[in-house]
């Protein structure tokens, strides 16, 4: 299931970048949650991470929160992961 979602992409142009290379769980999820609040609907967040768990967790977070997981790009020693904000709602349902 996870592998199906791991679409490789190239040349995605992000609006905001969050560098969390060397950070581990749960910094990837906290960062995504916080950074997404700063984005407008339609904008793209780029997450730089070398944490393997993010490959599974970030697509799952997008599914849970109704945002689009665009895909990943391999940057030799870390990944670039792209998420597009689709709504203003928070994962816990609060506006």
């Amino acid at each position: 299931m996870v592998v199906e979602k791991l679409k490789f992409v190239e040349g995605v142009r992000p609006d905001v970048t969050a560098d969390i290379v060397l950070m581990m769980c749960p910094m990837h999820l906290l960062t995504v949650e916080q950074k997404m609040k700063e984005l407008k609907v339609g904008e793209v967040l780029e997450i730089l991470t070398d944490y393997d768990g993010a490959l599974e967790d970030i697509p799952a977070w997008c599914e849970k929160t109704g945002n689009e997981f665009i895909g990943i790009e391999d940057a030799s020693n870390f990944f670039r992961m792209y998420v597009r904000k689709l709504s203003e709602s928070h994962p816990d349902g609060k506006e």
Partner: peptide
């Protein structure tokens, strides 16, 4: 490692 204090650092 092991906590989110100080930005996970």
């Amino acid at each position: 490692y092991g906590g989110i204090q100080e930005g996970g650092r």
